[in-house]
């Protein structure tokens, strides 16, 4: 008796579905986003108007200087500095990073001190220091017993502004690169070098053929960032009169007083090069990431995770 009652009061399934289909969905109103959007639009308008109507920006003057020969020469020098310094920093940084993971406490200590010093002292101060090396060391000479003086060179003769810039910024940047490469080396599981040892590979081969190639995958993305940072950091060489992009602009506006237009030219070129580098970095990362994603399918990752968790169970 009671069973029959219950089935009568309950709505039929088909009518329930029809009811739900008739319901209207009212989207939530997010007033915060509306207000934010409006404020941003107003702000953008004022910024654009300020750029457009203020004649002191001198857009036409800036456009005229964009491909000025001395600006072009400065840009070229900036690019050369960036490439040379980055290449040296990678080489020195790799050496320092390998020292930092070496079994010898002296090598580790020396490398640690290197990173501590060159990362800790501002780049500008290092730059001016190397430029003034002659105040510290007047000349470099090599004298051998029985042979006499082999060569002697005055510090000022080779410590040109360009050379000091390369030395100072390479050493400084190498401090950062060393940390990046060290992190890359640490990211390679210790089982890899253990297996290589067990196969009879000597330490130098293990580093060169097993550890460093695998570290590369982790090293490339932050190295791209460092290269972009370095490009901008080279503008510091203006202080020791290296003829870079910023210095060329400065020497023009020192004569013509068109300060703002020339700063716009400089900013434009830095932005342009950084944009190109960012695109390059994107492709580089995708290239290195592809070898991972192509082979490391979702299913395989699940399997490996399962194996990994099993391994933990066993060791526990």
């Amino acid at each position: 008796m009671s069973k029959v009652d219950a089935s009568e009061t309950r709505p039929q399934p088909s009518s329930l579905v029809a009811d739900v289909d008739r319901l209207v969905v009212v989207p939530r109103r997010n007033y915060g986003i509306w207000i934010g959007t409006a404020l941003t639009l107003v702000l953008s308008f004022f910024i654009l108007r300020a750029f457009a109507v203020n004649p002191a920006f001198g857009w036409e003057t800036a456009a005229g200087y964009l491909f000025h020969p001395s600006i072009m020469r400065g840009l070229l020098n900036t690019l050369i500095l960036t490439v040379v310094i980055m290449a040296l920093a990678i080489i020195i940084g790799t050496v320092v990073a390998v020292m930092r993971v070496s079994p010898s406490p002296v090598l580790r200590g020396f490398a640690g001190a290197y990173v501590w010093f060159f990362r800790g002292v501002p780049a500008l101060i290092q730059l001016i220091f190397w430029f003034n090396l002659a105040l510290l060391v007047r000349e470099f000479s090599l004298t051998l017993p029985f042979v006499g003086e082999v060569f002697s060179i005055r510090t000022n003769d080779f410590m040109t502004p360009f050379f000091s810039a390369v030395v100072a910024l390479s050493l400084c940047e190498a401090g950062y690169m060393a940390e990046i490469i060290r992190a890359g080396i640490k990211s390679v599981p210790s089982g890899q070098s253990e297996a290589a040892s067990a196969l009879g590979m000597p330490y130098r081969n293990i580093l060169k053929r097993i550890v460093l190639p695998q570290a590369m995958r982790f090293v490339v993305p932050p190295t791209g960032n460092e290269a972009i940072n370095l490009l901008k950091m080279t503008s510091l060489v203006t202080f020791i009169a290296v003829d870079d992009l910023f210095y060329s602009a400065q020497s023009i506006y020192a004569r013509t007083f068109e300060t703002i237009p020339l700063l716009i030219v400089v900013a434009f070129w830095y932005l342009a090069v950084v944009s190109i580098m960012s695109v390059g970095q994107h492709f580089l990362e995708r290239h290195f990431g592809r070898s991972e994603t192509r082979t490391d399918s979702w299913a395989l990752r699940v399997v490996r995770n399962a194996i990994g968790s099993r391994a933990k169970e066993f060791s526990a």
């Binding site: 599981p189 890899q192 253990e194 297996a195 067990a198 196969l199 009879g200 590979m201 695998q214 391994a311």
Partner: peptide
């Protein structure tokens, strides 16, 4: 050491090398 082979719980194949490269690495370089 090269005359004593060792196998590990976590296999430790060189992950940046193909199967063939894993197999010929030590014979060629050691």
């Amino acid at each position: 050491r090269a005359e004593i082979g060792m196998l590990f719980q976590s296999f430790n194949l060189f992950s940046h090398m193909t199967v063939m490269e894993n197999l010929i690495e030590a014979p060629i370089h050691v």
